[in-house]
Design a protein around this nucleic acid. Structure first.
Length: 268
DNA sequence: CCCGGAACCTGAAGGC
DNA sequence: TGCCTTCAGGTTCCGG
């Protein structure tokens, strides 16, 4: 499932291939993949536009166009942007962006993925919280964001309006690294715990970017390769396994309808 | 504003 | 073998 490290990997690996190219056509095999504007307008307005650069906001990937508009992608749970039609296979391709000399395939088995063509990126990403890897995201900022909240810390970490880019997997990993139980009320964390969590979030995300993302299900890099971050996971998706640190069987619970893994001994 | 649950999707996995 | 149910999860919407 693409979260910040996966989307960042797609951005850096795609950028050298698509920057400077002109869009020559758009094919849609599942029209509801276009959220805005209409499918017809989306197709016609994109033709002839040149891609000047790629950006990322949380889990949103944006292609900046020479017209000043932005083509925005959200891969949701199962989307991939691929440079080759047959990799990993030709099934589940919902859209193709044709460019001069290159085609980009939007593969998405679950059909949750979305594209927008907008004048202002902020109209899509405006409500996002701070980027956790930018200097502005300090321990004090995190403390303010968590202050007074009664929802489980796990749920708050996954709230994109609080922090941008953290999803189910990396919330579990950050909480394990910080030694905090997922069901703790966010506002109940001590300043010391918040400091630890702040460091854990950055460390977990940076390490996963270094591993080119986690290929748990349906995540492929643009060239069709898998990421390796999931091999470093301490708790996420490790159903039925034991804690690497203390050997205690990991627990699986549900928080906000999401599978949540933690070590009952290492996390307090 | 804050919180929690359903809906959107389809394939994989498990039960009988 | 095969049908049926459950699970997976990012975001949005809705109700309390």
């Amino acid at each position: 499932m693409p979260e910040l490290p996966e989307v960042e990997t797609v951005r850096t690996e795609l950028e050298p291939y698509v920057t400077g190219r002109k869009i020559t056509g758009v094919e849609l095999f599942w029209e509801r993949i276009v959220k805005q504007p209409s499918a017809d307008e989306f197709r016609s307005r994109l033709v002839g536009k040149k891609i000047t650069g790629l950006g990322r906001n949380g889990k949103y990937l944006s292609f900046q166009l020479d017209s000043g508009e932005a083509l925005i992608f959200h891969l949701k749970m199962s989307g991939s942007l691929l440079l080759k039609a047959g990799s990993p296979d030709g099934k589940y391709v919902r859209a193709v962006i044709h460019m001069d000399g290159l085609d980009l395939y939007f593969r998405d088995p679950r059909k949750f993925g979305v594209m927008w063509l907008v004048d202002d990126i902020k109209s899509v990403t405006g409500k996002l919280g701070p980027e956790p890897l930018e200097p502005g995201f300090t321990g004090d900022v995190l403390a303010d964001l968590l202050h007074g909240r009664k929802a489980p810390i796990k749920a708050v970490l996954c709230d994109q309006t609080v922090i941008a880019g953290i999803g189910n997997m990396y919330a579990d990993e950050a909480l394990f690294a910080a030694g905090i139980k997922p069901l703790r009320a966010a506002g109940s964390l001590s300043r010391k715990e918040i400091t630890k969590l702040h460091g854990a979030i950055k460390q977990v995300l940076l390490q996963a970017i270094g591993e080119k993302g986690a290929s748990v299900v349906n995540y492929y890099r643009p060239g069709g390769e898998l990421g390796k971050a999931h091999f470093q996971f301490q708790v996420a998706h490790r159903r039925g396994q034991n804690c690497n640190v203390c050997g205690t069987p990991l627990k699986r619970i549900t928080v906000r309808n999401r599978g949540t893994y933690f070590c009952p001994k290492c996390q307090h």
